[in-house]
Amino acid sequence: MNGLYTAIRAELFVALRSFSSKLVVIAPATITLLQYLLTKLAETGQAARDNLLGNSSFDAALADSAYGYFVDGVKTGLTILGLLLVAQAAYSFSYERDLGTLRHLFIRRASRPSVVLAKLVNLHVQALLSICLLLSLCWFVAGMLWEYGPVVEDGFELISAAEIRTEIGAGLTLALLPLPAAIAFGLLVSVSAQSATQAVTTALGLTLAMDILKAMLGDFSSYLYASFQPSLLDQSYLQDVSRLVRGYSDVLIDERVQTLNLWVPIPTMLLLLAMTLIIVRWKKV
């Protein structure tokens, strides 16, 4: 336990002073901010043109709720965060092995499993900070550029603000659950790879491959943690939430998929972690 505590302290000491950790925390929020500004700019231009031409559309009327933009921003941020975390996790162990700094830790204070667990904790701390920053920024900026409120059509409230927030809460929970599995996947690759370069390219390559293949797996894709993670080819529940909070009533929610979303990622994470802990015991450092 003392070794694990020492390893966590060492991890945090380096993370506080490293660029890549700061990137993981800041990049998703920064890119989302950029997305908001560009969206607002495009919308303002479109609105000016519509005013000049005297046009108005149903979509434009619905899109005005800040909740929709909030969800879009969170989805973008989590997509980037997912990729960054996989890359960072893949880099973390293998890079320090390349440097030789891991050897000092193993010889002086911490067992190999302790070091892996310390990295897992550190990556979760980075993920948590990044998510907090992302959610705060999305909430604040979306509220500043648009207006939070219920979905109203012809003066009739289709979905109340409280219902929207509940839906967003559920969507967020389901979208965040796969992140620990993504981190554990990155760590597994990191421990197994021969070098940091190999680890990062392999982890990102396999993540993107999973993204592409999940569409072809049909029902089986629901047993893959990556299916529930916001990604470039997004099948996550957050994708549905984005439409729900805009008042689209044609969203079909598959209860079975939602249940698997709740139950697949964490056991997957534990399985990947167990594999990592086994491999790290016999791997040359």
């Binding site: 002073r17 030789g100 002086r108």
Partner: peptide
């Protein structure tokens, strides 16, 4: 495999410097 239990009684200096380059 249990060298970490020696609690710092053993240290090593390797042929490569084994330092964090950005610190």
């Amino acid at each position: 495999a249990d060298l970490h239990r020696a609690k710092g009684k053993v240290v090593a200096i390797f042929d490569t410097p084994s330092l964090h380059p950005n610190l």
